[in-house]
Design a protein around this nucleic acid. Structure first.
Lengths: 267, 267
DNA sequence: CAAAGCAGTATTAAAAATCAGACAGGTTGA
DNA sequence: TCAACCTGTCTGATTTTTAATACTGCTTTG
């Protein structure tokens, strides 16, 4: 019944790529339900591949119910958006509406080890060379559907208190505060990246699919780096939303994010 | 001299995909300069392809100077990050530090037309069916290096004042306020998507590369939708950063974004 | 209503990419 | 020094992609 889990592992060549691109355009809304695709010949030209290859990609899309092909008439995007219980997270504070949603998310611990801090992590956390950190890789699921892949690094002296079961259940953030860390501020950066084979498997997406990438570095009151989070989100199941208000008088107007008070922290 | 513009157009199969994945991991910092890659055999196994395919991907990376291959020793990531200074944008308010950077960005108008509003746009702007909108597609460049692909939709009665040269030069946002629109609030959503052939060409990236996707809908004081922006950013040239402060007493703590006062609006 | 045109369907053979394996030669560390 | 591992190189079998060419069926137009 692997319908939307099209093709894990790095299989597939051009046809697979065209499939990914088209599916991305559809689920993204660029090709809304009801829209008619260009003809296969036109598509072949557009993507720079042969018609047979386009056809193979369309086959998969049709099989998944994303498109409806009618001979003579054309290929139309069907409204049958299979998923869509997308988890919306407040863009500014990054607190997902999980509380409202019944907190039905669970986490699965994929890996757990103490290692010397990798260069990017020790740089970001401003650690001395060779400092050991606890590295944990987790997948967060919503109704047993994975939506985020989390890699956290915490200096080992802080992480001593975290057991494996802690990590599997509790958001790392709460563990930090439980450990007595005075969380003060954090820097975040949003980007986009491609699904490598390992995260692709964990998130049940195809290798090469687009993912939202979030990197967060948390500091305590003394300015010490206490957590490095590298998160990857499935764009079809996770959204970063925000509302901005235009405030101030003319000439000195600016945007101001609308804050939604809520405790907790997204991962 | 097309060095980092590896392979535009939809050519390449698995090798191309592996190349994209590896390059993504390198430029993203997962494989920092100096890191030694796993052996070709291990890579082949990891990506589920043959060694020859891995080899082809490494060939391109080596040609671009991203890796250094030494027979017998192994393949290491070189620190030669040909990356241009990434444009950082304030995450909360989405105002890029363009002013500080000398405002050296220019825009190129790719397409310009009045059309009936597509379904996603008319939905988002809450327009009646069949309302005509002005659709403009632009590419923004920094030192003649493209970093964003912008598709804007504006109701045609508002857009009457915009000439083609206006669009090529001025941020649409300023045009709106010049037209007397009382901008009140906006909703934004961040995601990730893949580069289709057309945007890939405009942004000078490979087809299938990861892009940051931002959708913004702007409303005026009367609650009317006045602008729909769909932006795609090159993650290697554009970053969304923010700083959060942890405020409040224990038990009612929450994050608060740090605001950097500045006028203007990012596109 | 008939014809033209378009779009999907199907089948072939050639071309290209990929695969699996083997071997040579350099480097490293026990 | 030897063993293990790495890149570099080559080869023939296999799979994927391509290109060319019919064909069927729906829609539209004269």
């Amino acid at each position: 019944m692997a319908l939307q889990t099209a093709r894990i592992s790095a299989e597939g060549g051009k046809a697979q790529r065209v499939y990914l691109l088209l599916r991305d355009e559809i689920t993204r809304g660029d090709l809304p339900p009801g829209a008619v695709l260009p003809g296969e010949l036109r598509l072949a030209d557009h993507y720079g591949v042969s018609r047979v290859t386009i056809r193979r990609a369309l086959d998969v899309l049709a099989q998944e119910g994303l498109i409806d092909r009618r001979a003579g008439s054309g290929t139309v995007v069907t409204g049958a958006a299979p998923q869509r219980a997308a988890i919306a997270a407040d863009f500014a504070t990054l607190m997902p509406q999980l509380v409202q949603m019944g907190q039905q998310t669970t986490a699965r611990l994929l890996s757990y080890a103490y290692i010397p801090a990798p260069a990017p992590v020790s740089d970001a956390l401003r650690l001395a060379d060779g400092v050991r950190v606890q590295r944990a890789v987790r997948v967060r699921l919503m109704d047993s559907a994975p939506f985020s892949h989390l890699t956290t690094h915490v200096p080992d002296d802080i992480a001593q208190d975290f057991s494996e079961t802690d990590l599997a259940g509790t958001p790392l953030f709460r563990l930090l505060e439980r450990a007595g860390v005075q969380v003060d501020h954090a820097t975040q950066s949003i980007s986009a990246s491609l699904a490598t084979p390992d995260v692709a498997e964990a998130l049940e997406v195809a290798v090469g699919a687009a993912l939202i990438s979030l990197t967060r570095v948390v500091f305590d009151a003394t300015g010490r780096g206490v957590e490095h989070l590298a998160a990857l989100y499935r764009p079809d199941r996770f959204r970063l939303d925000m509302v901005l208000n235009r405030v101030g008088k003319a000439g000195a107007r600016q945007w101001e994010p609308v804050l939604v008070p809520m405790t907790g922290a997204a991962e």
